[in-house]
C-alpha cells in the first residue's frame, strides 16, 4: 500500500508539472528534495539516539515494570474474557505503558508476547478473540503521554516551544481510545454475544 501511495504522489506530481508546461521543475524538485531528505535524515539520527538512550535508562531503572504493575488493575475490567491471574494481562500492561511513555520500540516485543499469550486462550486458532481486538484497538488508538518523535521533529525544525504539543496530542489519543473502547463494547456484544 505504501508502494501505491508513494508511486501515486510521484506520478501525479510529474504528470501535473508536465501538463503545466514545466517538466524541468520535476527534475529540480527530485534532487532538491533528496538533499533536504538527507539532512532531515541526519537530524533524525541525533533525535533517535537521544531518545533511545534515555528510554534505555528508563527501562534499566525499572520504570516500565513499575508503571505496568500500577496499570494492570485498571486494565482488568477492559478484558473480562481473560481469566484472573493469566500472564497475558501483564504483557498487555507492559505494551500499553511503553506506548504511554512513547517508547514504541520497547512496546513491540511486549505486544507480540501478549498476542502469543492471548492465543493460548483461543479455542479457534485462526479467528481473533474479543480480548485481542480490544488490545489491538487500544494499541492503534495509540494512547500516549509523550509524543517523543513529534516533539523531536519540532525541536529540530526550530519551534519556539517544541513540547507544546504534548497536551493536545495526549488528549487526542485519549479521546480516540475512549471512542474505540465504546465502539468495541458495542460490537463485541453483536459479534461474540458476550459482555
Amino acid at each position: 500500500m505504501v508502494n501505491i501511495i508513494w508511486a501515486a504522489l510521484i506520478l501525479t506530481g510529474i504528470v501535473w508539472a508536465g501538463f503545466g508546461g514545466h517538466a524541468e521543475l520535476a527534475t529540480t524538485t527530485i534532487f532538491n528534495q533528496a538533499t533536504k531528505g538527507l539532512s532531515a535524515g541526519l537530524e533524525l539520527i541525533a533525535i533517535t539516539a537521544v531518545w533511545f538512550g534515555l528510554s534505555r535508562i528508563a527501562e534499566k531503572a525499572g520504570l516500565l515494570t513499575g508503571l505496568a504493575r500500577l496499570m494492570t488493575p485498571l486494565l482488568r475490567p477492559l478484558f473480562p474474557t481473560i481469566p484472573r491471574g493469566h500472564s497475558s494481562l501483564g504483557s498487555i500492561a507492559m505494551n500499553l505503558t511503553a506506548n504511554l511513555l512513547g517508547l514504541a520500540d520497547a512496546a513491540t516485543p511486549f505486544g507480540l508476547k501478549a498476542m502469543h499469550q492471548l492465543q493460548e486462550l483461543n479455542t479457534r486458532r485462526d479467528t481473533v478473540t474479543p480480548a485481542m481486538i480490544t488490545f489491538l484497538a487500544m494499541n492503534s488508538a495509540c494512547t500516549t503521554l509523550l509524543p517523543a518523535t513529534a516533539i523531536a521533529l519540532r525541536a529540530t525544525a526550530g519551534a519556539t516551544e517544541p513540547s507544546s504539543i504534548i497536551l493536545p496530542a495526549a488528549l487526542a489519543s485519549g479521546i480516540a481510545t475512549v471512542a474505540v473502547l465504546v465502539a468495541d463494547r458495542f460490537l463485541r456484544r453483536r459479534v461474540f454475544w458476550c459482555k
Binding site: L9, I10, G13, A26, T29
Partner: peptide, 28 residues
C-alpha cells in the same frame, strides 16, 4: 541502537521527501 535505526530509516525519509515534494511543487 537509536542511531543504527535512524541510519536504516534514512533512505525511506529521502524517498518520501521526493514524493511529497513533487506532489507539492508541481502545483497539484
Amino acid at each position: 541502537d537509536g542511531a543504527r535505526l535512524a541510519v536504516q530509516v534514512m533512505p525511506y525519509v529521502i524517498g518520501i521527501y521526493i514524493a511529497t515534494g513533487l506532489f507539492r511543487e508541481s502545483g497539484f
